[in-house]
Design a protein around this nucleic acid. Structure first.
Lengths: 196, 196
DNA sequence: ATTGTATGCGAGCAATCACTCGCGTCACAA
DNA sequence: TTGTGACGCGAGTGATTGCTCGCATACAAT
């Protein structure tokens, strides 16, 4: 942020810009995400935009960060709720929550995970993935009796990666698989792997 | 292709362009993949480039298709070799072959799977994934006794997706996991899932 | 040798983009 | 009411891009 918006007017403008960024991204794709376009969509001049954002990517970052944060929050909530639970029922609930969170905004998920070059910038990659990994690690480490895998961090990595990918791809590609069936399969996959 | 190169001279030029495209992609990333840049790297004028390629993406397509084809070929070969085998030894060998194929050109794999917008164009997405899925389906369907999953296509989809993602991410991110350990984990993952 | 075609060149065009700057307007404190 | 800084505007700039076109050269067929 180049400058803090102090008055109500400017804070609303910043909001309009972020909202416009999100909608340009969703409706026209990343290629159309130009500063002029976002400004126009926000009903704002290009110059105004640069009073609060240092450059184009800063706008993108806010949009993406908000989405990641929001999604991660939902999944994390489901995981926290179930942190005391036992067995595969926990996995089931978490996968369910993950799917629900991802289904909330398919269009944005598509852009974020398929078009964005920023999503791959190593550094700030996947708030979502990191937070879920941490929570999963907590769960797995807290209940070693549930895992016959010797190497816990690696098991966590494999599990989280597999679940995350399958969930995202199912939401985006919508293969001919029922939601409940999918959850069964994922539970079977990690169940056979982790639980004795 | 806008025109077929008839003489040796022009065929060599097309080759130089494709090679230059690949090297620009690998060394400078997708953002630097401009027609002028590729032409310069190939020691060719921008005009010449457009005699055989209709537009920028056509060059990209050739580069990516070649890479996908090449990688898929290697994995498919390993799978064909093992089509008669039994049990998890097959899975082990296939995963090994997949890792080897992916390790062959890390730099290009990175660009293809992380930067390219084309890689996500639904239509020509993942020659690799499709071919492996087909082969995997053949294997799984041919040996129903090896699977306690009722829905074979779905099991195939889940398995291939999980293996592919984990392999790619391991090659690209190089987490602190030994190669042999990784293979063990993947075998354990799909073993617990598929095999009784 | 001549002619027709394939090949190759590179200056440059039209469009786009991220971003700036000078100027006018507005809110708020005194 | 007035002064001051926050705010907002939008034409414009410099750079880059994908791509074309007129022209020169190399080759092949006659």
């Amino acid at each position: 942020m180049r400058k803090q918006p102090r008055q109500v007017r400017s804070r609303q403008m910043v909001e309009r810009i972020v909202a416009a960024g999100r909608s340009v991204l969703v409706e026209d794709g990343y290629d159309a995400f130009s500063t002029n376009r976002v400004a126009a969509a926000a009903g704002v001049s290009p110059g105004s935009l640069y009073q609060y954002f240092p450059d184009k990517t800063a706008i993108l970052e806010v949009v993406v960060d908000r989405y990641s944060e929001e999604t991660a929050e939902r999944v994390a909530a489901a995981m926290s709720d179930r942190i005391g639970g036992t067995g595969l029922a926990v996995v089931r609930d978490i996968v369910d929550a993950l799917l629900t969170a991802l289904e909330a905004d398919r269009a944005l998920l598509r852009v974020v995970s398929e078009e964005l070059p920023l999503a791959r910038s190593r550094a700030r990659r996947d708030t979502l993935e990191r937070r879920i990994s941490e929570l999963a690690a907590t769960y797995l480490l807290a209940r070693p009796e549930h895992s016959r895998r010797p190497n816990a961090p690696m098991a966590t990595w494999v599990t989280v990666l597999a679940i995350e990918t399958i969930a995202i791809r199912w939401v985006l590609d919508q293969p001919a698989i029922e939601r409940d069936q999918l959850i069964d399969e994922i539970v079977a996959l990690v169940g056979g792997y982790l639980v004795s």
